[in-house]
Protein backbone atom coordinates (compact mmCIF):
# COMPACT_ATOMS: atom_id res chain seq x y z
CA UNK A 1 0.00 0.00 0.00
CA UNK A 2 1.34 3.41 -0.99
CA UNK A 3 2.23 5.95 1.69
CA UNK A 4 -0.13 8.47 0.12
CA UNK A 5 -3.09 6.16 0.60
CA UNK A 6 -2.14 5.49 4.23
CA UNK A 7 -1.82 9.22 4.81
CA UNK A 8 -5.29 9.78 3.32
CA UNK A 9 -6.84 7.18 5.64
CA UNK A 10 -5.06 8.60 8.68
CA UNK A 11 -6.10 12.14 7.78
CA UNK A 12 -9.73 11.12 7.30
CA UNK A 13 -9.63 9.40 10.71
CA UNK A 14 -8.24 12.52 12.41
CA UNK A 15 -10.74 14.88 10.74
CA UNK A 16 -13.63 12.56 11.55
CA UNK A 17 -12.76 12.66 15.25
CA UNK A 18 -12.09 16.37 15.44
CA UNK A 19 -15.47 17.14 13.90
CA UNK A 20 -17.13 14.48 16.02
CA UNK A 21 -15.84 16.15 19.18
CA UNK A 22 -16.71 19.60 17.86
CA UNK A 23 -20.31 18.56 17.21
CA UNK A 24 -20.81 16.22 20.19
CA UNK A 25 -19.61 18.10 23.25
CA UNK A 26 -21.73 15.97 25.57
CA UNK A 27 -19.82 12.93 24.32
CA UNK A 28 -16.54 14.62 25.16
CA UNK A 29 -17.72 15.44 28.69
CA UNK A 30 -19.01 11.89 29.19
CA UNK A 31 -15.70 10.50 27.94
CA UNK A 32 -13.86 12.54 30.56
CA UNK A 33 -16.19 11.53 33.39
CA UNK A 34 -16.43 7.77 32.67
CA UNK A 35 -12.96 6.64 33.80
CA UNK A 36 -13.33 8.38 37.17
CA UNK A 37 -16.80 6.90 37.62
CA UNK A 38 -15.51 3.37 37.00
CA UNK A 39 -12.61 3.93 39.35
CA UNK A 40 -14.89 5.50 41.95
CA UNK A 41 -17.30 2.59 41.80
CA UNK A 42 -14.70 -0.12 42.41
CA UNK A 43 -12.51 1.71 44.90
CA UNK A 44 -15.44 3.35 46.71
CA UNK A 45 -17.37 0.13 47.17
CA UNK A 46 -14.16 -1.75 47.91
CA UNK A 47 -13.27 0.62 50.76
CA UNK A 48 -16.85 0.39 52.02
CA UNK A 49 -16.93 -3.43 52.12
CA UNK A 50 -13.29 -3.95 53.07
CA UNK A 51 -9.95 -2.21 53.47
CA UNK A 52 -6.72 -1.49 51.56
CA UNK A 53 -4.78 -3.80 53.91
CA UNK A 54 -7.16 -6.71 53.16
CA UNK A 55 -6.74 -5.90 49.46
CA UNK A 56 -2.94 -6.19 49.73
CA UNK A 57 -3.29 -9.48 51.66
CA UNK A 58 -5.67 -10.94 49.06
CA UNK A 59 -3.45 -9.91 46.13
CA UNK A 60 -0.26 -10.97 47.90
CA UNK A 61 1.69 -7.90 46.80
CA UNK A 62 2.65 -4.59 48.35
CA UNK A 63 0.68 -2.37 46.02
CA UNK A 64 -1.38 0.78 46.03
CA UNK A 65 -5.03 -0.22 45.40
CA UNK A 66 -5.93 3.12 43.83
CA UNK A 67 -3.01 3.02 41.37
CA UNK A 68 -3.86 -0.65 40.70
CA UNK A 69 -7.40 0.25 39.64
CA UNK A 70 -6.27 3.37 37.77
CA UNK A 71 -4.21 1.02 35.57
CA UNK A 72 -7.15 -1.40 35.31
CA UNK A 73 -9.55 1.37 34.34
CA UNK A 74 -7.25 2.74 31.65
CA UNK A 75 -6.73 -0.68 30.07
CA UNK A 76 -10.44 -1.47 30.31
CA UNK A 77 -11.33 1.75 28.53
CA UNK A 78 -8.69 1.00 25.87
CA UNK A 79 -9.90 -2.55 25.37
CA UNK A 80 -13.57 -1.57 25.18
CA UNK A 81 -12.68 1.17 22.74
CA UNK A 82 -10.67 -1.05 20.38
CA UNK A 83 -13.11 -3.96 20.49
CA UNK A 84 -16.13 -1.76 19.77
CA UNK A 85 -14.53 0.69 17.36
CA UNK A 86 -12.70 -1.86 15.23
CA UNK A 87 -14.74 -5.04 15.78
CA UNK A 88 -18.03 -3.20 16.19
CA UNK A 89 -17.42 -0.74 13.39
CA UNK A 90 -18.67 -3.33 10.92
CA UNK A 91 -21.94 -3.27 12.83
CA UNK A 92 -22.22 0.53 12.76
CA UNK A 93 -21.32 0.69 9.08
CA UNK A 94 -24.00 -1.90 8.38
CA UNK A 95 -26.59 0.01 10.42
CA UNK A 96 -25.72 3.20 8.55
CA UNK A 97 -26.04 1.35 5.27
CA UNK A 98 -22.55 2.31 4.12
CA UNK A 99 -20.80 -1.05 4.65
CA UNK A 100 -21.06 -1.98 0.93
CA UNK A 101 -19.34 1.32 0.00
CA UNK A 102 -16.52 0.73 2.46
CA UNK A 103 -16.05 -2.79 1.13
CA UNK A 104 -15.90 -1.69 -2.51
CA UNK A 105 -13.54 1.22 -1.68
CA UNK A 106 -9.97 0.86 -3.02
CA UNK A 107 -8.50 0.04 0.41
CA UNK A 108 -8.73 -3.34 2.07
CA UNK A 109 -11.50 -3.35 4.68
CA UNK A 110 -9.14 -4.37 7.50
CA UNK A 111 -6.74 -1.55 6.61
CA UNK A 112 -9.59 0.99 6.57
CA UNK A 113 -10.92 -0.24 9.92
CA UNK A 114 -7.52 -0.11 11.57
CA UNK A 115 -5.95 2.99 10.02
CA UNK A 116 -8.97 5.25 10.35
CA UNK A 117 -9.22 4.22 13.97
CA UNK A 118 -5.56 4.56 15.09
CA UNK A 119 -5.53 8.40 15.39
CA UNK A 120 -8.79 8.30 17.36
CA UNK A 121 -7.46 5.65 19.72
CA UNK A 122 -4.18 7.48 20.36
CA UNK A 123 -5.93 10.80 20.85
CA UNK A 124 -8.66 9.51 23.17
CA UNK A 125 -6.35 7.27 25.18
CA UNK A 126 -3.88 10.10 25.64
CA UNK A 127 -6.68 12.22 27.10
CA UNK A 128 -7.91 9.42 29.37
CA UNK A 129 -4.44 8.52 30.68
CA UNK A 130 -3.45 12.13 31.27
CA UNK A 131 -6.74 12.62 33.09
CA UNK A 132 -5.35 10.43 35.86
CA UNK A 133 -2.09 12.39 36.12
CA UNK A 134 -3.37 14.71 38.89
CA UNK A 135 -4.53 11.71 40.92
CA UNK A 136 -1.22 9.87 40.48
CA UNK A 137 0.74 13.01 41.36
CA UNK A 138 -1.39 13.32 44.47
CA UNK A 139 -0.74 9.69 45.41
CA UNK A 140 2.91 9.32 44.44
CA UNK A 141 4.40 12.79 44.11
CA UNK A 142 5.28 14.70 40.94
CA UNK A 143 8.21 12.64 39.58
CA UNK A 144 6.73 9.19 40.29
CA UNK A 145 3.30 10.36 39.10
CA UNK A 146 4.69 11.56 35.77
CA UNK A 147 6.80 8.38 35.29
CA UNK A 148 3.84 6.14 36.05
CA UNK A 149 1.60 8.11 33.67
CA UNK A 150 4.24 7.64 30.95
CA UNK A 151 4.30 3.88 31.66
CA UNK A 152 0.53 3.75 31.28
CA UNK A 153 0.77 5.66 28.00
CA UNK A 154 3.40 3.16 26.83
CA UNK A 155 1.18 0.24 27.90
CA UNK A 156 -1.92 1.43 26.06
CA UNK A 157 0.10 2.37 22.95
CA UNK A 158 2.02 -0.92 22.67
CA UNK A 159 -1.04 -2.86 23.87
CA UNK A 160 -3.04 -1.38 20.99
CA UNK A 161 -0.96 -3.17 18.34
CA UNK A 162 -2.01 -6.78 19.07
CA UNK A 163 -5.47 -5.66 20.13
CA UNK A 164 -6.06 -4.11 16.70
CA UNK A 165 -5.39 -7.45 15.01
CA UNK A 166 -7.39 -9.29 17.65
CA UNK A 167 -10.39 -7.00 17.12
CA UNK A 168 -10.07 -7.13 13.34
CA UNK A 169 -10.28 -10.94 13.68
CA UNK A 170 -13.64 -10.48 15.36
CA UNK A 171 -14.63 -7.96 12.70
CA UNK A 172 -14.13 -10.71 10.12
CA UNK A 173 -16.28 -13.04 12.22
CA UNK A 174 -18.96 -10.34 12.50
CA UNK A 175 -19.05 -10.07 8.72
CA UNK A 176 -20.10 -13.71 8.60
CA UNK A 177 -22.70 -13.85 11.36
CA UNK A 178 -25.96 -11.96 11.70
CA UNK A 179 -26.35 -11.46 15.44
CA UNK A 180 -23.21 -9.36 15.71
CA UNK A 181 -24.26 -6.96 18.49
CA UNK A 182 -25.15 -9.94 20.69
CA UNK A 183 -21.66 -11.33 20.29
CA UNK A 184 -19.87 -8.04 20.95
CA UNK A 185 -21.98 -7.28 24.01
CA UNK A 186 -20.70 -10.24 25.98
CA UNK A 187 -17.36 -10.60 24.26
CA UNK A 188 -16.00 -7.43 25.85
CA UNK A 189 -16.63 -8.37 29.50
CA UNK A 190 -15.45 -11.95 28.86
CA UNK A 191 -12.15 -10.69 27.43
CA UNK A 192 -11.80 -8.31 30.38
CA UNK A 193 -12.55 -10.99 32.99
CA UNK A 194 -10.09 -13.46 31.43
CA UNK A 195 -7.45 -10.74 31.05
CA UNK A 196 -7.58 -10.05 34.76
CA UNK A 197 -8.58 -6.44 34.13
CA UNK A 198 -10.04 -6.08 37.62
CA UNK A 199 -9.52 -9.49 39.23
CA UNK A 200 -5.92 -10.73 38.89
CA UNK A 201 -5.26 -13.82 36.74
CA UNK A 202 -3.05 -15.28 39.48
CA UNK A 203 -6.16 -15.82 41.64
CA UNK A 204 -8.12 -17.50 38.84
CA UNK A 205 -8.52 -21.26 38.28
CA UNK A 206 -5.73 -22.80 36.14
CA UNK A 207 -7.88 -23.17 32.98
CA UNK A 208 -8.82 -19.48 33.12
CA UNK A 209 -5.18 -18.58 33.61
CA UNK A 210 -4.30 -20.60 30.49
CA UNK A 211 -6.90 -18.73 28.41
CA UNK A 212 -5.60 -15.42 29.74
CA UNK A 213 -2.14 -16.17 28.31
CA UNK A 214 -3.34 -15.91 24.68
CA UNK A 215 -5.20 -12.63 25.17
CA UNK A 216 -3.23 -9.49 24.35
CA UNK A 217 -5.12 -7.50 26.98
CA UNK A 218 -3.62 -9.68 29.74
CA UNK A 219 -0.13 -8.35 29.02
CA UNK A 220 -1.37 -4.79 28.55
CA UNK A 221 -3.00 -4.99 31.98
CA UNK A 222 0.18 -6.42 33.51
CA UNK A 223 2.31 -3.72 31.88
CA UNK A 224 0.03 -0.92 33.03
CA UNK A 225 -0.26 -2.43 36.49
CA UNK A 226 3.47 -2.08 37.08
CA UNK A 227 2.60 1.44 38.20
CA UNK A 228 0.72 0.05 41.19
CA UNK A 229 3.82 -1.48 42.74
CA UNK A 230 5.18 0.59 45.60
CA UNK A 231 8.55 2.10 44.65
CA UNK A 232 10.30 2.77 41.34
CA UNK A 233 9.20 0.64 38.37
CA UNK A 234 11.79 -1.94 37.16
CA UNK A 235 12.90 -1.89 33.51
CA UNK A 236 13.22 -5.70 33.07
CA UNK A 237 9.50 -6.63 33.42
CA UNK A 238 8.54 -3.65 31.23
CA UNK A 239 10.84 -4.79 28.42
CA UNK A 240 9.70 -8.40 28.79
CA UNK A 241 6.00 -7.50 28.54
CA UNK A 242 6.62 -5.17 25.58
CA UNK A 243 8.39 -8.07 23.84
CA UNK A 244 5.41 -10.39 24.35
CA UNK A 245 2.98 -7.71 23.14
CA UNK A 246 5.02 -7.12 19.98
CA UNK A 247 5.10 -10.86 19.30
CA UNK A 248 1.34 -11.13 19.73
CA UNK A 249 0.91 -8.06 17.52
CA UNK A 250 2.67 -9.83 14.65
CA UNK A 251 0.63 -13.04 15.10
CA UNK A 252 -2.81 -11.41 15.46
CA UNK A 253 -2.31 -8.85 12.70
CA UNK A 254 -1.15 -11.46 10.17
CA UNK A 255 -4.11 -13.69 11.11
CA UNK A 256 -6.60 -10.84 10.82
CA UNK A 257 -5.15 -9.71 7.48
CA UNK A 258 -5.67 -13.22 6.12
CA UNK A 259 -9.10 -13.85 7.61
CA UNK A 260 -10.89 -10.55 7.09
CA UNK A 261 -10.60 -11.02 3.31
CA UNK A 262 -12.33 -14.40 3.68
CA UNK A 263 -14.99 -12.73 5.84
CA UNK A 264 -15.62 -10.04 3.22
CA UNK A 265 -15.90 -12.60 0.41
CA UNK A 266 -18.30 -14.77 2.38
CA UNK A 267 -20.45 -11.82 3.39
CA UNK A 268 -20.71 -10.63 -0.23
CA UNK A 269 -21.43 -14.14 -1.49
CA UNK A 270 -24.26 -14.63 0.99
CA UNK A 271 -25.53 -11.10 0.48
CA UNK A 272 -25.76 -10.34 4.19
CA UNK A 273 -24.09 -6.96 3.85
Amino acid sequence: MKMGKIRTLLKSGILLDLYFLKNNKSNLIAMLIWPYLMLGLVVGMGFLFGSPSAFKRNIGLDINPIAYFVASTVVMMASISVMWEVGGNVLFLRWLGILPYVIVAPHRMSITLVLSYVPRYLFFMFIQVVEFLPLLVLLEGVTAGVIKTLIMLLAVTVGMLPLLGFSALFASLLLMVKEESNILNWLNPIVLIFSGALYPTSLMPYWMWLVSRVLPTTYTVELARIIALIGSPQLAPITFLIGILMGLAVVYNILSYMLIGAGEKRAMKRGII
Binding site: L41, V42, M45, G46, F47, F49, G50, S51, P52, A54, F55, R57, N58, I59, P65, F69, S72, W186, P189, I190, L192, I193, A197, L198, Y199
Partner: peptide, 15 residues
Protein backbone atom coordinates in the same frame (compact mmCIF):
# COMPACT_ATOMS: atom_id res chain seq x y z
CA UNK B 1 -20.52 -10.61 33.06
CA UNK B 2 -20.24 -6.86 33.71
CA UNK B 3 -21.74 -7.22 37.18
CA UNK B 4 -19.44 -10.14 37.92
CA UNK B 5 -16.43 -8.18 36.73
CA UNK B 6 -17.16 -5.39 39.22
CA UNK B 7 -18.23 -7.63 42.11
CA UNK B 8 -15.01 -9.66 41.81
CA UNK B 9 -12.98 -6.45 41.96
CA UNK B 10 -14.91 -5.11 44.95
CA UNK B 11 -14.51 -8.38 46.85
CA UNK B 12 -10.72 -8.10 46.52
CA UNK B 13 -10.99 -5.57 49.35
CA UNK B 14 -12.95 -7.85 51.65
CA UNK B 15 -11.09 -9.66 54.45
Amino acid sequence: LWILLFILAILLFAP
